[in-house]
Design a protein around this nucleic acid. Structure first.
Length: 436
RNA sequence: CGGGGCGUAGUACAGCCUGGUAGUACGCUUGCUUCGGGAGCAAGAGGCCGGAGGUUCGAAUCCUCUCGCCCCGACCA
């Protein structure tokens, strides 16, 4: 995109409404604008980031055999009523009426709907196991939205569901998702530490939350310092091989790590004192196994090999996609602005034309811009160099291609890596090779 | 939902106590100069002072009600 033709409103001053770094930077870098408490408009650059994160999530779900579908944001309240969950879920659920006075709800989660879908279309044990997911906007009527997109009322979430014939199968699905999640966070350039977690209102007996360690996190977490250095070659794990899967799961869940609800003092005492860490975490995902609870609530059954009905064992798996935008910024920023991981950056590179109107400089910029279709932001504004440098740092493009009359005369550009600040003078071809 | 704070130009704020022509900085527009890390000078544009009632000759300012936003806590992807 050309900056002069883009809705990319950067702000120099800190907006008063934003207290934490990620919220401040998202507003200043022109990623979002607030519409109401906890509700945001995603501007073009922010939407690109959101899509990029969703795409990584999608690829890693697909890789372990989960199928993507799309469930609606609105549902009839009937299903929730019949299952007794309508009143159980509480005021966090947004309820509304249509013109016929029928009760609708804006989905906060989809265990019931998806179990009901399978009830309608799955009959035999031969059709299981299955894993299904979607990436969709959710609404929760939070009592106190805060920290920008980190705790919004409307948020984008990947929610996935597994259906297995028995507990052993469900545990395998759970572990496969653990693998998919750790691969996802790794690709997003953050460490999502799996922590033993409470199951909350969804219910169940097995759950992990994934936390990005950050002082601004909302959750109190306790962990063995070993989790900070644990490196699992997740790409080497074959999720279809139960033995490899179990070994992997063992390795990532052995060091002590728990949220405050699940903090176990006895186990904590067994962690060597010098390795005990107490801190804050941003919860970016959670996985559950809840057995046959929801299958039974909606009457989901398949006919087993011996002709008798089986209630499938379900798990559910969530990743807060929009929350991750904030969490990634919390993990990757400095005083000048955002430092996007390559995998999610809205633009791979910014082209900074330091002398708008200079023919040679302009020509070189155009050449660079044409070489990176759809991937570069061309700062073609009539602004002084300093303004362009500052905005590029703020927006956090992984690479800055700095083109000025000095270099243009010599046929070179300057390439800056945002993360390290490292710069080098190169020919355009060499610079493009680095960026690619 | 308990506690606290704040609503004045696109952004950040002053003015309010003590009522009397709505201001400052940044941003924006135009011109000239400048031009590799948020330039200088000059001239401009931009406000239902969150909303509704009230008090008063007169309300951004005082009173009442209301709506919204932020922060701490409790609760939650």
């Amino acid at each position: 995109m050309r900056l002069t033709r883009s809705l990319l409103p950067t702000i120099k001053q800190n907006p008063a409404e934003a207290q934490i770094a990620s919220h401040r930077l998202m507003l200043r870098a022109g990623l979002v604008r607030q519409v109401a408490a906890g509700i945001y408009a995603w501007l073009p650059a922010g939407w690109r980031v959101l899509r990029n994160i969703a795409q990584v999530v999608r690829e890693e779900q697909d890789r372990v055999g989960a199928q993507e579908l799309l469930l609606p944001t609105l549902q009839s309240a009937d299903l929730w009523r019949e299952s007794g969950r309508y009143d159980a879920y509480g005021p966090e659920m947004l309820r509304l009426k249509d013109r016929h006075e029928r009760d609708l709800i804006y989905s906060p989660t989809n265990e019931l709907l998806i179990a009901d879908l399978l009830r309608q279309s799955v009959r035999s044990y031969r059709e299981l196991p299955q894993m299904l997911y979607h990436i969709q906007w959710k609404f929760r009527d939070e009592t106190r939205p805060r920290f920008g997109v980190m705790r919004g009322r409307e948020f984008l979430m990947k929610d996935g569901y597994s259906f297995d014939l028995d507990h052993a199968g469900a545990v395998r699905s759970y572990r496969i998702m653990m693998l998919a999640y750790l691969r996802t966070f790794q690709r997003l350039g953050v460490q999502g530490v799996p922590m033993a977690a409470d199951t909350g209102p969804i219910g169940g007996d097995l759950s992990h939350e994934f936390h990005i360690l950050a002082p601004t996190g909302e959750s109190q977490v306790f962990y063995d310092a070993a989790v900070e250095t644990i490196r699992i070659g997740t790409d080497d794990v074959d999720h279809t091989d139960p033995e490899q899967l179990d070994r992997f799961f063992e390795a990532v869940t052995t060091p002590y790590a728990a949220t405050d609800e699940k903090h176990d003092l006895a186990a904590w005492e067994r962690v060597p004192a010098e390795r005990r860490r107490e801190g804050r975490g941003i919860e970016v995902g959670q996985i559950f196994n809840f057995g046959t609870l929801y299958s039974e609530l909606v009457g989901l059954q398949v006919i087993g090999p011996d002709g008798s009905p089986i209630a499938p064992n379900m798990g559910s798996y969530g990743i807060g996609v929009s929350r991750l935008v904030g969490a990634l910024i919390e993990a990757h920023h400095d005083d000048a602005g955002i430092i996007w991981p390559d995998s999610v950056a809205p633009f791979r590179a910014a082209i900074l034309n330091l002398k708008q109107g200079d023919a040679a400089t302009g020509a070189l910029c155009e050449q660079a811009y044409a070489a990176m279709p759809g991937r570069a932001l061309y700062d073609d504004r009539e602004e002084r160099a300093g303004v362009k440098f500052a905005d590029a740092d703020l927006m956090g493009h992984p690479w800055q291609l700095i083109v000025g009359p000095r270099g243009a005369a010599a046929g070179t550009v300057e390439l800056k890596r945002r993360a390290t600040g490292e710069r080098q003078e190169l020919t355009l071809e060499a610079a493009l090779a680095h960026i690619a």
